[in-house]
Each structure stands twice: as structure tokens, then as C-alpha cells.
């Protein structure tokens, strides 16, 4: 298993009341599979992804990535850099950096030498070879999202976490992105956790779950 989640609980204090967002979540994820999660707004999808991405910490329970419990770490930056890739709904590219620099941000942070062959392959794969030196402001929405996917996979992470990746795309670009996820999963064996409202995205999951009232239901 590349990911094991056991009895995960998370709550927030909302004034005097305690709001339980995640209630005893447990699941396992195999390497090279796609997990899609859907659920209504406020069901806890983003909270779950934040915990899995080490952007937030749980109240109780365990998250085990590559057989290592996250409780063993004090600083999660190294885990985020090497084991997790993020794809955000709003792309979140750094406008001051050009496309190549944006893509290489995780590699620059880890001080790894850039694998230029891999980088060239990615640019060809994502059909962005003529945009290497462009800046995010010069890109279309679809291109920005492809750049953010490239950035998520440049360090060859164990898991890619995508939150509403098609939420900000038109239907045509959304379909292209869905195909891209399937292709990446097939060609590179990448593991995805995708939270979405979009049924077309939801359907690509090997493992499909629905989050409702803080509880996870296998579909």
C-alpha cells in the first residue's frame, strides 16, 4: 500500500461548538491507482486532502505513506517535496517565474539536479514545448493547469493530490485534463487522489468514495 489512513478524525472549534469535519476515516490506497472522492460542499473533502497532503494535522488517527507514519515527522516540508504533488483548482502558479521555472520549483526546492531529458519529455507530453519561457499571465486556463500538473509530477512523487482540478476549466479543457490523468496513471504509474464535484472526473477512479457528513463511504 502506498497510503494507509486509519481512524482519522478532525474537528474545528466554531465559537463554543466543536464541529467534527472528519469522523473516523479509514482506507488504503494501492500504488498506481486513482482514488476519486466526491461529496457536497462542506462535506470535508478539502480537509481530508489537507491532512493527506500534510498541510494540516489531524486530531487523532494515523496517515501512513510508503510505510512511514507521518507522526514520526516534525517537519513535513521534506515529505511534501519528495512524496506529494499538488494540483490546485486555481493552478497557483507563481506569476514571476516562467513556465520552466514554475515546473521546476519542487526540484529547485529539493536541490536536485534537473533531469533535462525528463523535463523535455514532459514538455512534449503536455504539448507545451513552445511555452517553456512564457509567463503564467501569457497562458490560457488549460495551459496553466497542464503546467501545474507538470509541476506536481516533476519530483516523481508517490502521491498526487488534486482538489477540484477541473473546477476552473471549460468542458473541453476539463476533458483533456481527465484524459491526461488517465494517461499519466497508465504511462507513469502515478497514484492520484482527486476530490471533485465533476462526475466525469469521479468516474476515472479505480477506487471511488463519497464523503458525507464526515464519513467516508466506499462506492
Amino acid at each position: 500500500m502506498i497510503l494507509s489512513v486509519k481512524n482519522l478524525k478532525k474537528s474545528y472549534n466554531d465559537g463554543e461548538t466543536k464541529l467534527e469535519v472528519l469522523k473516523d476515516i479509514s482506507f488504503d490506497l494501492k500504488k498506481g491507482s486513482i482514488l476519486t472522492i466526491k461529496g457536497p460542499s462542506g462535506s470535508g473533502k478539502s480537509t481530508l486532502l489537507s491532512l493527506l497532503g500534510t498541510l494540516d494535522t489531524q486530531d487523532s488517527g494515523d496517515i501512513i505513506i510508503n510505510d512511514k507514519n507521518l507522526d514520526e515527522y516534525d517537519d513535513f516540508s521534506e515529505i511534501r517535496n519528495n512524496h506529494i504533488g499538488f494540483i490546485f483548482q486555481f493552478h497557483n502558479l507563481i506569476s514571476e517565474l516562467n513556465v520552466t521555472e514554475n515546473v521546476c520549483v519542487p526540484a529547485f526546492i529539493s536541490n536536485k539536479a534537473i533531469d533535462h531529458n525528463f523535463l523535455d519529455t514532459l514538455f512534449e507530453y503536455f504539448q507545451l514545448t513552445n511555452k517553456e519561457n512564457a509567463f503564467p499571465l501569457d497562458l490560457s486556463g488549460g495551459e496553466k493547469q497542464r503546467v501545474s500538473v507538470m509541476r506536481a509530477i516533476i519530483n516523481k512523487p508517490s502521491i498526487i493530490i488534486a482538489d477540484e482540478p477541473t473546477g476552473n476549466l471549460d468542458e473541453k479543457n476539463a476533458l483533456k485534463l481527465i484524459d491526461l490523468f488517465k494517461k499519466l496513471n497508465k504511462d507513469f504509474g502515478l497514484t492520484f487522489i482527486i476530490a471533485t464535484h465533476d462526475n466525469k472526473v469521479f468516474d476515472i477512479g479505480h477506487q471511488k468514495m463519497e464523503l458525507s457528513d464526515g464519513k467516508l463511504l466506499n462506492l
Binding site: 516540508s77 517535496n81 519528495n82 497557483n92 520549483v105 526546492i109 509541476r151
Partner: peptide, 11 residues
């Protein structure tokens, strides 16, 4: 931008 860098592992 700092949040993005932090998300991708910058300490």
C-alpha cells in the same frame, strides 16, 4: 506565492 512554495516543500 509563499504558500505555494511551502506546499511544494520549502521550509
Amino acid at each position: 506565492e509563499m504558500a505555494i512554495l511551502n506546499a511544494f516543500g520549502m521550509n
